[in-house]
Design a protein around this nucleic acid. Structure first.
Lengths: 245, 245
DNA sequence: CGTTTTATTGACTAAATTCAACGACAGTGG
DNA sequence: CCACTGTCGTTGAATTTAGTCAATAAAACG
């Protein structure tokens, strides 16, 4: 968890096909604007529900999850965060975080000082626009999860989640050959899908037997994405091609 | 559905306590920027899933809902939109709408031309900031709904929804005395909460008998909001005080 | 090699869905 | 004024889905 790190000119996201790459001048501006880099190890919290963090983050590498807790201990996983995602929009607006963010793998984050957020909006409309793009995209993902929890049964939900994770892995270049190496326990799947642990286990076995997913503790892949999408009733319109920040 | 209408200087949202009011110069700018007003009657669609609309909207009066359809007819209501809310962020970024927006009451919307959206971001950082605020707030609402669908049982879900609707009605000044006059059928409640119609009916009766909600076809109120929040395990941190646009 | 976490299984219970009617009510046209 | 139609709400019974409890097996970890 330290500052410094290489300048933006060597940003690891520069190779990412899926992101727009900013022109040189904007890149210079970001290099001056950003605060540094931080590393988090698997299981570490980036920020906690109910706090007002000092920093905002962009994911440079790694996968994280956003969770929300009820007082009685029940936990809902809201979404997973991949390279290129922005963390802390609520904090940017001086609000209390409504959720916790925790690293699922070792992760490197690019840090920004929260108080300077308005400068970004005022001075870099293009970056501001991209941030709005990210927010709209994130909202669409939450919509899709709402559809899952509200309308799909356990098997459909799990198939939809597998497709979502693999797709994001492919889009962000961390799932070579369509195989995403990411440790997710069945307990975490249960907390994401709103199912009990036992039912999650049985459902996962069913999907494996059906040949719809190939999902173990540490890797996820979907042999036939089109078939899985059809099974889970996911419509084709995935919008891709992501902006930079 | 016509243009014109009164200028922003007489905007109906000007009286709304919960919104920041822009300074005179910004207000002038908006008056020139906006396209006009449109009226929608109950049941009319503002835009449809899968399309790229020409206009973006701000809700001046009325209540609307955002829904998402699966091919087989299952429907999930994503959220309800109240005065001050912004519609079409996805469209602003030239993406296809992932959902349908439909008026639940007669509604007046302030219209903006989609192509000019970037001008707003570039010329009015403060408005851009507020838009980001709205997006973050909307995301927090979706999070809360995800928690409902994933972790709460039918009774808790319904209590949480009642509290949410009444709270929003109060915050936007359309629920005098804490009573929100809004026609929502049990079928719509079912589609919001991911429950069957029959179970929705029985759950609603239970909540009425428990005295937790007073919810009929056309009005919603919650006699003891604190008690209902405790019952539904809603934590206190509601963030209010909304920006303008 | 023990310890902890994670996965799996069976038996039982609770929650929610489905199917199938029926009732209440408002609007319409004769 | 009254039958006709459509929407919305309500009820009972049977069924399915998912949750709970309790125990064991299998990996992963130091």
């Amino acid at each position: 968890m330290l500052n410094g790190g290489q300048p933006c000119l060597a940003c690891p996201l520069a190779d990412c096909e899926a992101l727009h790459q900013p022109p040189a001048d904007v890149r210079q501006w970001i290099a001056a604007f950003r605060h540094g880099e931080m590393r988090f190890t698997r299981g570490e919290q980036v920020f906690a529900q109910g706090t007002r963090p000092t920093f905002l983050y962009t994911v440079l590498s790694g996968v994280l999850m956003r969770t929300r807790l009820l007082e009685d201990g029940r936990r809902q996983i809201i979404n997973f965060m991949f390279p290129g995602d922005f963390l802390g929009l609520q904090a940017a607006l001086d609000a209390e975080m409504s959720h916790t963010v925790e690293a699922l793998t070792n992760a490197t984050l690019c840090t920004f000082v929260r108080e300077k957020f308005f400068d970004l909006v005022a001075q870099q409309p293009r970056l501001s626009f991209d941030l709005t793009w990210l927010a709209a995209h994130e909202e669409a993902a939450l919509e899709e999860h709402l559809v899952s929890l509200g309308q799909r049964n356990a098997r459909e939900r799990m198939a939809a989640l597998a497709v979502f994770l693999v797709q994001r892995g492919i889009d962000t270049g961390i799932a070579p050959g369509g195989v995403l190496t990411l440790t997710i326990t069945q307990g975490q799947i249960a907390d994401m899908l709103g199912l009990s642990l036992v039912h999650t286990n049985r459902t996962l076995q069913t999907l494996r037997r059906m040949g719809l997913v190939d999902w173990t503790l540490s890797t996820i892949s979907v042999p036939d994405i089109a078939a899985a999408k059809a099974y889970a009733k996911i419509d084709g319109s995935t919008f891709s091609s992501r902006p930079y920040i």
